[in-house]
């Protein structure tokens, strides 16, 4: 008769003990541990992301004949040269026009930014929709609070900066709040992320829209929500999303508010731009 085998309880005891110690530890100790652990873990995240890039590169490379690559390359170089020249010309024109209009309207100077392109290393699984990890960090000059954009849309802002990576609080995070403006009205409204519903695209809310807002979009058109630029952190005119349904008055009649469907680029992010303010202003976000 075989003797019954008992599971060794010691690891469980250690685990329980460890959990109790962790639970009892003061907040700052836990934060210190988390940060230290993160810095150790970061190279792994980076390596994993880079390996993924190499894998994609070789998969494409192996599946394409060599002479095609040469032809593509030549064509792309031509297009690139052409576009760069056009871009420079347009940018110069735009800058001149902007300056002229701002002088005429006596607009106070807006913050200027230097942009850094950053690849998305991964989405933070702890807060699935709300955080991204980017392959840029303190060493690249990233600061807490810096806006993160893709194309002409808002992605979020830098919430934590590590040596070579940074974490981005996404625009859908309920703790993300910025000054916005809505189609047809120049005045300040407020955009804030909304609590997440599983299996539903991320949403936010626009609030504090003045109660005499009267804009009605044309047939089939939608009301867009943009950054207003008045908040001092984000530049103006970046798309946040589209108002879902109708804007409705709050029960006290003081404001209009509505739900905002965030722009679709947010669901498939590979590369984003971090905007580093050239003259950083005061902020309580740090």
């Amino acid at each position: 008769m075989a003797r019954p085998t008992y599971i060794n309880p010691r690891p469980f005891v250690y685990l329980a003990f460890g959990l109790v110690v962790w639970w009892l530890a003061p907040g700052f100790v836990r934060a210190l541990f988390k940060d230290a652990f993160y810095e150790f873990q970061a190279p792994l995240v980076l390596t994993q992301s880079q390996l993924q890039d190499i894998q994609t590169y070789w998969a494409v490379y192996a599946g394409t004949p060599k002479h095609d690559m040469i032809t593509f390359n030549r064509d792309l170089l031509r297009v690139n040269a052409n576009l760069t020249s056009q871009n420079n010309q347009l940018q110069r024109l735009l800058r001149e026009n902007n300056r002229r209009v701002e002088r005429l309207l006596a607009v106070p100077s807006r913050p200027e930014y230097k942009s850094i392109i950053a690849r998305v290393a991964r989405r933070d699984i702890n807060t699935w929709w709300q955080r991204l990890i980017l392959r840029r960090g303190r060493e690249d000059g990233v600061r807490i609070g810096s806006p993160v954009v893709v194309g002409t849309g808002v992605v979020g802002r830098v919430a934590k900066v590590h040596a070579t990576t940074c974490e981005v609080q996404l625009v859908s995070d309920p703790d993300f709040r910025i000054a916005a403006s809505v189609d047809g009205d120049e005045r300040t409204a407020i955009y804030q992320g909304a609590p997440n519903v599983p299996f539903v695209l991320p949403q936010g809310v626009v609030t504090h829209l003045p109660s005499d807002y009267t804009y009605t979009p044309g047939e089939g058109a939608q009301v867009s929500v943009f950054t207003s630029g008045a908040g001092g952190v984000f530049p103006g005119g970046l798309l946040i999303g589209i108002v879902v349904g109708e804007l409705s008055a709050t029960s006290d009649g003081m404001f209009f508010e509505g739900r905002v469907r965030l722009h679709t680029q947010l669901t498939s992010l590979e590369e984003v731009a971090i905007l580093i303010p050239l003259k950083p202003g005061p902020t309580l976000l740090e």
Binding site: G145, R177, A179, A230, V233, F234, L284
Partner: peptide
């Protein structure tokens, strides 16, 4: 003012012990 409200909302964290009451 409208501009001050915009700056407050954008630069003060949501979970701060300060908030806007209208």
């Amino acid at each position: 003012t409208e501009a001050e409200l915009a700056r407050f909302m954008e630069q003060v964290p949501v979970d701060y012990p300060l908030r806007i009451a209208s």
